[in-house]
């Protein structure tokens, strides 16, 4: 006969879920989170011949297209463009794939949500987790490129990358939890997310350089608006650490619709900023991320008790 576990503290199911209880439940179900991430990855590439190569092919295709459009056609003139693009794109992809799959994570798992109890926050978090795994897979491509070209990264600035990744995850998780719950009530959310992400992508200096925005806003009183986009700060850290070219002699042709530098210098990243400046920006993103996460959890806690019914 198996012994019963000691009567532990009672679990209380009240009308609402407190923040502390929510976090406690997510922690208690952390092994489920890992399982869900594994499941998401496994199911995604089950029965596909190329499997995980697909997640590496995605940035490769972006690379080819953007290189053609921006370097060849528009003559943007960024040296080592593949490395510039990938360093920002990889960070963006965590945000983008995380959010778009999180938005449908609860509605797609309706059978599960209505029949089994587990902290539902796990579902959007698993989407973010899977996006993180893709990030590491795609990083392999970038690392291979860096090694192949014996590219000089800035180790001093690269130190800001892990904190940047953490704050990116905080931000993404908060939005993911909010969107997942919102989509149960309003199915438009998933479509709005797709459109919103498209716009957001072009508002973030990933394909073009941040200094284009900076120079347009230079000296204006509302210069600060560019920092309202937390993804700008995140992407800059990755670019500064990996791409590591602040400015370069402008080798582009005379036709430069995007590279607007008047002199012989093409400015790409903020100049003269040390790791501390980047860390301060990342700190701000982390703060925003935490606030969004707390608000999202509070929203989720309010509606979680009805998700099973509303699906």
């Amino acid at each position: 006969m198996t012994t019963l576990s000691e009567p532990t503290d009672a679990r209380v199911i009240g009308s609402r879920l407190g923040l502390r209880e929510q976090v406690g439940q997510i922690w208690a179900y952390r092994h489920l989170l890992l399982r869900m991430v594994r499941k998401e990855l496994k199911v995604k590439y089950k029965n596909s011949f190329l499997g995980f190569f697909w997640s590496m092919l995605n940035p490769a295709l972006y690379l080819v297209v953007f290189w053609l459009v921006f370097q060849v056609l528009l003559q943007a003139g960024i040296p080592n463009f593949p490395i510039y693009l990938l360093s920002g794109l990889l960070a963006w992809n965590v945000f983008s794939t995380g959010l778009s799959s999180a938005a449908v994570s609860i509605t797609m798992n309706g059978a599960l949500v209505s029949k089994v109890y587990f902290p539902r926050e796990i579902l959007p978090l698993a989407s973010v987790g899977a996006a993180l795994v893709h990030f590491f897979l795609q990083s392999v491509v970038l690392l291979a490129a860096l090694v192949a070209f014996r590219y000089d990264v800035s180790f001093a600035h690269a130190l800001a990358i892990p904190p940047a990744l953490v704050s990116l995850l905080l931000l993404t998780s908060g939005l993911a939890i909010f969107l997942a719950a919102a989509n149960v009530y309003l199915r438009d959310t998933q479509h709005l997310v797709e459109l919103g992400l498209l716009a957001w992508f072009w508002m973030t200096p990933i394909v073009y350089q941040q200094q284009i925005i900076a120079s347009r806003l230079d000296g204006k009183s509302w210069e600060w608006v560019q920092w309202l986009n937390p993804m700008t700060s995140v992407v800059l850290v990755f670019q500064r650490g990996i791409f590591n070219v602040v400015s370069t002699a402008n080798s582009g042709s005379s036709v430069r619709p995007i590279a607007d530098t008047p002199g012989a210098v093409l400015r790409i990243l903020p100049s003269g900023m040390d790791a501390g400046w980047y860390l301060a920006h990342i700190g701000a993103v982390a703060l925003v991320g935490i606030v969004i996460l707390i608000l999202a959890l509070a929203f989720f806690g309010r509606v979680a008790g009805n998700l099973a019914e509303e699906i």
Partner: peptide, 15 residues
Amino acid sequence: AGILRPTSGEIRTRG
């Protein structure tokens, strides 16, 4: 089971 939450009142489960 915790799948739904009561509108008011509470349920305590042990174990």
